[in-house]
Computed example of a mutant assay.
Amino acid sequence: MYKIPESVLVVIYTEDLQVLLMQRADKLDYWQSVTGSKDFPEEALAATASREVQEETGIAIADGGSVPAANLSDWRVANIYEIYPVWRHRYAPGVTKNTEHVFGLLVPAGIAVTLAPREHLQYKWLPYREAADACFSPSNAEAILQLPHHLEQ
């Protein structure tokens, strides 16, 4: 089964603008926010974001969960980018571009993070500007730099 070329990027942050970054297991020098593709074409983007956050960090987004659903916000930004050649085999033949929808998730400082070991090896919290500098993905870095703007809205 091929991946759907529509995904989410979720910037997880605290009130004092610390941003969670995770080290990829398959590319040790790649640090990133939560990312992931839809499981099926009709899956709502917020559902994809919630599922990916839970799978990659163990943070449950739901009223009564680790973080209230209201803390997940759709930043209404979509990036279309060329899929890195190393990951193109995951997509149908001829698919070279992905549409990434950006979300933000406000979490309490000190929240427990449990990584999915097949995807990420370690995590760190960094001030947002340092986090942007540490990202391998330009769209991820840009999303993190936009964090203060989205808090003003």
Rank of each mutant, 00 (worst) to 15 (best):
I4L: 13
I4K: 07
P5K: 04
P5M: 03
E6Q: 13
E6A: 06
E6P: 09
E6G: 03
S7K: 10
V8H: 01
V8W: 01
L9Y: 00
V10P: 00
V10R: 07
V10D: 09
V11N: 04
V11D: 02
I12V: 12
T14S: 10
T14D: 13
T14H: 10
T14Y: 14
T14G: 08
E15M: 13
D16W: 11
L17P: 01
L17Y: 15
Q18G: 09
V19Q: 13
V19F: 03
V19C: 04
L20M: 05
L20F: 07
L21D: 06
L21Q: 04
M22Y: 06
M22F: 01
Q23K: 15
Q23V: 06
R24F: 01
R24T: 07
A25Q: 09
D26C: 11
D26M: 07
K27S: 13
K27A: 14
L28P: 11
L28G: 15
D29S: 12
D29Y: 14
Y30W: 13
Y30F: 12
W31T: 00
W31C: 05
W31S: 02
S33W: 05
S33E: 09
V34C: 14
T35W: 13
T35C: 10
T35N: 12
G36P: 02
G36S: 03
S37N: 15
D39C: 05
D39W: 08
D39N: 11
D39R: 12
F40L: 05
P41S: 12
P41L: 11
P41N: 11
P41Y: 10
E42F: 07
E42H: 10
A44V: 04
A44P: 09
A44I: 05
L45H: 00
L45W: 08
L45N: 10
A46P: 00
A46Y: 07
A47D: 13
T48D: 04
T48N: 03
S50P: 00
S50V: 07
S50D: 05
S50M: 08
S50W: 03
R51L: 03
R51D: 07
R51E: 03
E52Q: 10
E52I: 00
E52S: 07
